[in-house]
Design a protein around this nucleic acid. Structure first.
Ligand code: FES
Ligand code: FES
Lengths: 153, 153
DNA sequence: CGATATCCGTCAAAATTTGTCGTATATTGC
DNA sequence: GCAATATACGACAAATTTTGACGGATATCG
């Protein structure tokens, strides 16, 4: 399959939103219009509902994604009225690998590489070493790309 | 998910087998024992059944994989008794991307990138450009790695 | 012609992803 | 204290994809 899950896509949308808001707060223009509703003052803290509305992602799903990003320290959560999420890290310091590790079922290239999945063929398997080495290359590749680099295009 | 499918794994096993046979034919030692059964002379042409036996992959599945590799010109097929498959290309000239393109459902990083899948959100989507650019990077990465490089470790 | 092996369409089982629901917990404003 | 709001989390159903199996057609060779 070799695809990024919807969860990771939704995460990128949310993080791009925060990234743009951050630009606005510094007096710079975002790359795409934010379509901020109402004339309320710009809130650095955005609720899951707002993020769902603006990204057009299903609320329940992206809410869960935001919780994970929060648990990973990429976002900071605030309870209560006017609560929501804020960027907690500079996106320059978060890699694509980190995002995948947070949201994908696994970052490994194959199921057999997963230590929990004890493949009964591993003793007879002829490509354990090749796959392992290729896997390392792929991991390093995704570790070499920051989210800033991805979103700020 | 971001994983290589079983089909691609089976393909790598088969190609490693051919790669090792090729070494033997040149009088060199393969990296892993071939466990050639019987005392028959070494055949450059190997049947799907033999490959299934030696890789421990389900016959029906790896047979289909071999057919695809044949249609892509990576293997050469021969009908009839003592028929089977041979390496048709130098593995130095076949990339990981080429193998994925042959066997994975898609080489694209997300479903939305697939032109057939006309995502109804694409007009509102905020990450079309970021995803597209990241996708290109990933494609180029997989195009930069040859199967020789992967299997000959 | 018969034995063997590649080819190919279809389909069911299994696994994974995606989305939904219900509920608990924490914070704020009154 | 209490109601309103928003995050946190477990469980579950629907949808999609992968994996594997079956049946039969086509090609080659002795
Ligand atoms: S380790 Fe599972 S098939 Fe190679
Ligand atoms: S293009 Fe489909 S969600 Fe972005």
């Amino acid at each position: 399959m070799n695809k990024l899950s919807k969860k990771t896509e939704y995460a990128l949308m949310a993080l791009k939103l925060f990234s743009d808001i951050d630009l606005v707060s510094k007096g710079l223009k975002p790359h795409s219009d934010l379509h901020l509703n109402s004339n309320a003052p710009l809130q650095m803290t955005v609720s899951a509902q707002d993020i769902a509305d603006r990204t057009h992602a299903p609320y329940e799903v992206i809410a869960r994604v935001l919780q994970v990003l929060s648990s990973r320290g990429i976002l900071k959560a605030e309870y209560g009225l006017f609560g929501g999420y804020q960027l907690a890290k500079n996106l320059n310091e978060v890699t694509v690998h980190e995002l995948m590790d947070a949201l994908e079922s696994s970052t490994d290239l194959t199921k057999c590489l997963n230590s929990e999945n004890d493949c009964d063929l591993s003793s007879k398997c002829t490509i354990v070493s090749p796959i392992t080495q290729l896997n390392t290359k792929v991991q390093n590749f995704y570790k070499s790309i920051s989210l800033q680099e991805v979103l700020h295009v």
